[in-house]
Simulated scan of single mutants.
Amino acid sequence: MGQTPDVGMEREMQELHMKACLYAGVNYAGHIREDGLSQWEYQIGPCKGVEIGDHLLVSRYLLYRVAEMMGVNVTMKPKPIKSYGSGGHLNFSTNKMREQGGIESIIKMYDPTFGAENAERLKESHWSPSMEFHAEIGDKWSSSVRIPSMVSVNGKGYLEDRRPPSNLDPYAASEALVRACILGEFLKQK
């Protein structure tokens, strides 16, 4: 994992990463320091379809380059240290989910799996969901799929799949969402 930088250096690195992403045209939505040792989260999006993969991979490349310039090592491992896990949460919606009454589509959603390598992150971790499918409104502590509280209040919006690992393949994850949500919905209608 390398030498642990101080918080000021971490913030400087995150700010440089954000600027590099914005300069490169990556849909960079924000960042926040997490609870884990030297753990930061950044959000990419909104993106349409598998375009998320392009933006995420470019952002990862830029993160590695900025870290290299600063003499810091970064990891995308889902379980870099015993106490904490790192997720690759996916916020997802369809037109139907964003329409009035879309909460019904969100609640009936899907159950894709994200592989055995992620199982280690999802057990005995701080703030990590279970591998078992479990959707809840507002629960970001144990649910595998979180429906944000404001989505419930508004009756429409998006869901957050909290199961994918931080080293997720964004194209495979996008495909899982499409298969489960869009194709699943289509097949239910037939």
Rank of each mutant, 00 (worst) to 15 (best):
T4E: 12
T4H: 10
M9Q: 12
M13P: 01
M13A: 03
H17Q: 05
A20L: 05
C21H: 07
G25H: 04
V26R: 03
V26C: 11
N27R: 09
R33H: 11
E34P: 01
L37C: 14
E41A: 09
E41F: 02
Q43L: 05
I44C: 12
G45Y: 06
C47M: 15
I52R: 02
H55W: 01
R60D: 06
L62H: 03
L62F: 10
V66Y: 08
E68H: 12
M76W: 09
M76T: 15
K77L: 10
K79S: 05
I81V: 13
S86E: 03
S86A: 08
G88K: 03
L90S: 04
S93I: 13
T94L: 03
T94E: 01
N95Q: 13
Q100G: 11
Q100D: 14
S105C: 12
K108Q: 10
M109V: 14
M109I: 13
D111C: 14
P112W: 04
P112Q: 03
F114M: 00
F114T: 00
G115S: 07
N118L: 01
K123L: 09
K123G: 07
E124D: 10
E124C: 08
S125K: 11
W127V: 02
W127H: 14
M131A: 13
A135G: 12
P148F: 00
S152Q: 12
S152I: 12
L159G: 00
L159R: 01
D161I: 00
R163G: 02
A173T: 08
S174G: 13
S174H: 08
E175N: 13
I182M: 08
G184Y: 06
E185T: 09
K190W: 13
